[in-house]
Simulated assay, not measured.
Amino acid sequence: MHVQNARRWAPRGTRAWLVAAAALAVACDVRMLLHPFIGPFLPGTAFCIAASLVEYFFGLAPALAVMLLGLGIADYLFVPPYAAITVFNQADVVLLISYPLVTLLVIVLIERLRRSQFRAELIASVAQSRYEMLLRHDNERMLARRAIDETHRLLRHLSHHHRTFIFIQALERDALQPADDLKQHSVLPRLPNEIAPGPRFADVDPDDIQRLGKALRPGTHRVRLKTGDGASKLTECVCERFTTHAGDFLVLRIGA
């Protein structure tokens, strides 16, 4: 899989160049400390290591700068005759051929490794993002299907128990507005916005309506229901909860 941004793995800014300059200085100091012991042997090794480390952490451009500057410093300070630029001998030729080849080979391999690593991280990040999108999509589809099923169940419930239906209470404000065709407005208690009355609403004692409107929950409830002779009778009622696409509703009806 081709990823164009794979070559942009290295951090940018002045920090990379400052670290490259520091690595070059450290490599030069280390080589000067070792010079009394090893003489002109391997004059560019310290700079090759410095360029490789800079490449691994900060990318190709700072590493090439360290390599080129290190080549000049190594040839000037650590290849005999020391500190002389007028003499060009076999030692200079060996350094000019071996040091750039080895350093470039190491730098290129590290660059390919870092690009492959960054490309793998990008692909993993994209795959994770797509996986999360699929999970959200599946979750939304499952919730939508559940809401549709609950809506159908609510409709079947209302059609089956329409004669014993007292009221519906919406758990979300303004999800259900009160009906406008109520009779005997002066007799019925004032309803909150989330309650819609049913056919048996007027038969329930107003105090029970107020009580249930504030603390209704799924389960069984006992309310005072008017009978044909005008008396009140304690009656078992059932409250069920339905989750639909329009919100959550509690349906209170008469019956066990």
Results as ranks from 00 to 15, higher is better:
N5T: 15
R12N: 12
R12W: 02
A16I: 00
A20W: 03
A20Q: 09
A22F: 03
A22N: 01
P36G: 04
A46D: 06
F47C: 05
A51P: 08
L53E: 06
V54N: 05
E55G: 09
F58N: 04
P62Q: 01
A63L: 03
A63S: 08
A65Q: 01
V66C: 05
L68P: 03
P81G: 05
I85R: 01
T86M: 06
N89M: 10
A91I: 06
V94Y: 15
V94S: 10
L96R: 00
L105N: 06
V106R: 02
I107P: 05
L113S: 14
S116K: 06
F118C: 01
A120E: 13
A127V: 06
R136E: 12
N139F: 07
R146M: 10
R153C: 07
L154C: 04
T164Q: 15
E172D: 14
A175F: 11
V187P: 07
V187R: 09
L188I: 11
R190D: 15
N193E: 12
I195H: 03
I195Q: 01
A196T: 11
A196S: 13
Q210R: 14
R211S: 13
G213T: 04
G219A: 06
G219L: 03
T227R: 12
D229A: 09
D229M: 02
G230E: 01
A231Y: 08
C237W: 00
R241L: 08
L252Q: 02
R253E: 13
I254K: 02
